[in-house]
């Protein structure tokens, strides 16, 4: 009972302190909100890129062209190899007649084909690959290229790798910039909270002289930081909800938040939870660092 009563004291005092130094509390909430707003852009764009990459993976396919000498038994043999491979999702047979129909849709190519007089294309397979097969395809490609009845194996490895690498770089740049923004905010938040601590240093001394345990002396300040972080994150969530529900166009000029509009609802909520968590961590860490200052320790 007494422990619960003391815990209640920590929460109550932490909450009341928000109002006792309301100016400083507002400053911390604004700093947290500004930081999370920047981080939401990094996090959101990272998610948009992830989705784009995932979408590219879904469309990832390979084209396999046979030599003119390949016959039905060769196609059957290769189909057997591909069907047995775990990296292959499905195989579509494209006869050369069907392929040329596709080419003839372009009038320029059609004129060229008419000049040739005969169908220069060979039969081909369109191989749809599994999403997770993109990392380890060289072995399969090499095996197919060695087959004497296969003229060419074509797949968008380079394009996919470029997109993948760009996403990777973008994620790291976002992480470094986001980390830098977070650390800068942490520094500012902890120093702002130390000003609040300085204003209430006599209370800290009193608690210490009363023999209050460390968690009771620190608790209100940590809780205050967590609450400020939470409130800061709520400001950002409210802003992003406004963007999501139509204010995006009007807010375009304030930064690329409209980019996030392609995200589905579940991603938005996941982003909000991440922001709330980061806000609370920022507040708690800021308060913890403020409590580690030498002069604060000397008060105890």
């Amino acid at each position: 009972m007494n422990f619960i009563s003391r815990l209640f004291f920590v929460f109550k005092e932490g909450f009341l302190q928000l109002f006792r130094t309301s100016g400083l509390s507002t400053a911390v909430i604004v700093i947290v909100a500004a930081t999370l707003l920047q981080l939401s852009l990094f996090l959101g764009i990272s998610r948009v890129l992830d989705r784009a990459l995932g979408s590219a993976r879904e469309k990832f396919e390979m084209a396999l062209f046979f030599t003119p000498s390949a016959d039905a038994s060769d196609r059957k043999r290769i189909l057997g190899i591909l069907s047995a491979d775990p990296r292959v999702a499905s195989v579509k047979v494209v006869p050369k007649e069907e392929a040329i129909q596709e080419f003839r849709k372009d009038p320029e190519i059609d004129r060229m084909l008419q000049a040739l007089g005969e169908n220069p294309l060979t039969d081909s397979f369109t191989v749809i690959l599994r999403n997770d097969a993109t990392e380890n395809l060289n072995e399969l490609v090499d095996q197919l290229k060695k087959d004497p009845k296969i003229e060419e194996v074509s797949y968008g490895k380079n394009e996919w790798e470029t997109v993948s690498n760009l996403t990777h770089v973008a994620r790291w740049v976002g992480l470094v910039l986001g980390g830098f923004v977070f650390l800068t905010a942490l520094f500012i938040v902890s120093n702002t909270l130390s000003i609040a601590l300085w204003a209430r240093r006599e209370d800290m001394v009193l608690l210490s002289r009363m023999g209050a345990p460390t968690w009771m002396r620190w608790g209100p300040y940590l809780w205050e930081g967590i609450t400020q972080g939470f409130l800061g994150s709520l400001v950002v969530v409210a802003f992003l909800e406004a963007v999501r529900h139509g204010a995006g166009v009007a807010l375009q000029k304030f930064g690329g938040f409209d980019l996030l509009l392609t995200l589905p609802s579940s991603e938005w909520w996941s982003l909000y939870l991440t922001l709330v968590f980061l806000g609370m961590i920022l507040g708690a860490l800021g308060a913890f660092l403020a409590l580690q200052k030498k002069w604060v320790k000397e008060l105890q």
Partner: peptide, 10 residues
């Protein structure tokens, strides 16, 4: 308050 701090409230 002092009772609360000292865990003696009731």
């Amino acid at each position: 308050f002092v009772l609360q701090v000292k865990g003696a409230s009731g």
